[in-house]
Design a protein around this nucleic acid. Structure first.
Lengths: 210, 210
DNA sequence: CCTTAATGTTTCCAATGTAAACATAAATAA
DNA sequence: TTATTTATGTTTACATTGGAAACATTAAGG
């Protein structure tokens, strides 16, 4: 119990901002995007439906904050299994983390890439997305393929890996990648890219876009 | 002019179903998904906002029909540049067509893969999506990669190509693939897959999923 | 010619996001 | 301490949306 047992709700929530984001993710996971209304989120927390405006401005602002939280968790999912020195094993772990997150939070995952619902120019969302992208960029480092000598080879490799896993995640969630058996096994569709034996000093290519 | 100049609007439209779909795509291209309301579509055609119900049941039904039309056009875009016997050139043309459609009709493209808005169990939509997928499946035929000997190798190759181009299309539209220069050049991120010199008789693998 | 079905309209309603005015509490300055 | 300002929520009102129900108009078929 917080406070005493008389349980008079305090007029001020205290941590409404975080509570609204948490409630939003709960609703999203449980009932999908269509159930994620401003009023539903507010009711879930126990405040009036106009209270979120003080913290997020509008529904879009709240959804943007939810998406930012999603990106941070997404990055954590990817980092989770990445360990050891074998670049292929690290790649596989990161990719699996990408898909595991999409599977665990399908609606949140979709929201995170929906410019119609989120403000992609929001600094917090951009930072969170960069955090997530940084994991993939690190994984792509040293990847050897037919465009390894082209200009922007690093960026291209990052984009290729990202496109592959992102496309597969979305197609799987949409139900269009069915037929290959159990969903979301990255090995099914990931080519066996090679890695350079020793990574030269390339400290760049960890930032999203300038 | 249709009819005489007195221009009494006929009570019945005559081809309302097609007109609503066309109006929906126009609004989608011009003002995006957020502007695509039942009332806006109906007003654009000049009927009451409940008229679509007779033909599509609900907004979701209308959006589903719009998406189906989108898939047919999408397939046409992919087929357009595919010619000749060089499998790599054919692949490149189909991929470019995929991206050209996404670029030409970004909101329609998004709608086509949005299970929140479209009824993916609709037979017409399924057929249209299959038509589009069949082009990619044909392109993947004979592709040689490190999983060419695995079971379901055909399906896997199709899915890999689809994931790559689909992911890249979406990331580009979302503005997340920026920084590599001009958008939507498939060569930037497409590995140079090889093809078997002569295609053995494999008449299957042109259907989406059973 | 009459009946029936198809196609649209009018009217009404519940849900939603937003704005404006107001209420309460916390922070800050005197 | 006391007064004032700011932050945080509530209440009320409103425009927009999708959908339901009842009705109107036309086409089809006996």
């Amino acid at each position: 119990m917080t406070e005493n047992d008389h349980a008079k709700k305090p007029y001020h929530h205290g941590a409404l901002k975080a509570a609204l984001i948490a409630a939003g993710i709960e609703i999203l996971d449980a009932r999908g995007l269509e159930a994620l209304s401003l009023r539903a989120i507010a009711a879930h927390v126990g405040v009036s439906h106009t209270a979120p405006k003080n913290h997020f401005g509008s529904l879009k602002g709240l959804l943007t904050a939810i998406a930012a939280t999603g990106f941070r968790r997404h990055a954590a999912f990817m980092r989770q299994g990445v360990q050891g020195d074998d670049p292929k094993a690290r790649q596989r772990a990161a990719m699996q983390g990408y898909l595991r997150f999409a599977q665990a939070h399908p609606h949140l995952f979709r929201l995170m890439f929906s410019p119609a619902q989120c403000a992609f120019d929001d600094p917090e969302l951009m930072a969170a997305a960069r955090e997530s992208y940084a994991v993939l960029a690190a994984i792509a480092e040293g990847l050897v393929w037919d465009k390894s000598d082209a200009p922007q080879a690093g960026r291209r490799a990052e984009l290729m890996l990202w496109s592959l896993v992102h496309g597969y995640a979305l197609l799987s969630l949409t139900g269009m990648a069915a037929g290959t058996g159990p969903l979301l096994q990255i090995d099914e569709i990931m080519p066996d890219f090679d890695y350079a034996p020793r990574t030269p000093n390339r400290a760049d290519s960890t930032i999203m876009s300038p």
